Amino acid sequence: MGAIDDRKDYSLQRLEQLKQALSHAQEIAGEKACVFASGSFGRLEASDHSDLDPCIVALSDENKESKLSLLQEIKLKSEIISAVESLGLQELDGDGKYIGQFTNHSLVNEIGSPIDDSNNTFTTRLLMLLEAKPIINEDIFYAVKRNIIDAYWVDFDRYESKFVPAYFTNDIIRLWRTFCINYEARTRKLVGDLRIKKKVKNYKLKHSRILTCYSAVIYLLSVYGLKNTVTPDDAIEMCLMTPLERLFSLRDNPGLSGSRGVVENLNRYV
């Protein structure tokens, strides 16, 4: 586990440095927004070659609008970019255009809506749940995660003793399919050196992204096999883990991974 532990230690060290470097960003965000990292830093698998995948989630006001003004958003993004540069991290992917800004209202209330994909709330929501670590305002970060889980478990009160998280599980599977579609759309016409880079992207997609989705599905199925239900707290516990931690948890808990047979449940519900 040497390489895995080294990656985790490096990720935690760099995230702590980021938090310290973003002290002014914390003032800008106030109690209005959180910032989290997904991707390799969110999975605690980063290295010197990893870039940061930051995202801003602002709280909504009574009119369902962001409490973070446009000017505050610009300042916050500027602070993130400056912190990345000062710490010598890799340049942000896409020239910084992927620093998203969403609201808790959009992430919760656009679940299953026609604009969920086009607004990118779908991917952001799932990454926030499955592979993310807070950088600014972790209380807001965890509160929004809980609100999202509660939205997926909206029918839980009616089926507490036999709740199958099909709504959530289907979205996890859809996330993997979205990754595949996006990869093909962005790389199928590449040539030369760009085509070589495509192989690296392909490896990342096949290994890290499928592990994010697979570990979540297999964990939920294992919980169901053991308890014949999956509670919101079970989902929260799963979402607090990295993909590798989910697999280690199954490995280290024979009762969880072996109950009723994970493969049997996988065939029945997915």
Rank of each mutant, 00 (worst) to 15 (best):
P165W: 06
Q101N: 09
A143N: 14
W153C: 06
A132R: 05
V144L: 11
G88V: 03
I149K: 02
S106M: 14
V108K: 13
G100T: 00
S113R: 10
I149P: 03
I140K: 13
A151T: 09
L126A: 08
I172D: 00
N109S: 13
P134N: 13
K97D: 10
G94Q: 06
F102L: 12
P114R: 08
V84P: 03
L127M: 08
E160D: 08
S161Y: 10
Q101P: 04
D157N: 05
P165R: 03
N170E: 14
T103S: 02
I173G: 02
D150A: 13
N170H: 12
L129D: 04
V164I: 15
T124C: 05
D139E: 15
I140S: 12
R158K: 12
L129H: 06
R158T: 06
I81Q: 03
I140T: 12
S113I: 07
L92K: 01
T124R: 00
D157K: 11
Y167H: 14
A143K: 15
G100M: 03
R158D: 06
A132Y: 01
Y167C: 11
G112D: 13
V154T: 11
A166M: 14
Q101K: 02
E110R: 13
I111M: 05
V164T: 08
K133L: 12
D139Y: 13
Y98A: 01
L129F: 06
I173K: 06
I140R: 12
I140Y: 09
S161K: 14
W153R: 05
E160M: 12
D150S: 12
P134S: 11
S161F: 08
L92W: 00
Y167K: 15
S86D: 03
I173N: 04
N137M: 12
V108Q: 14
G88T: 00
D117K: 08
T169G: 10
S86H: 00
T169M: 15
I81C: 02
R125Y: 04
I80D: 00
V144R: 02
R146I: 10
I135T: 04
R125H: 06
S118R: 05
N170G: 09
N147M: 14
D157G: 04
Y98F: 11
E160L: 08
D93P: 05
I136N: 06
S161I: 09
R158M: 03
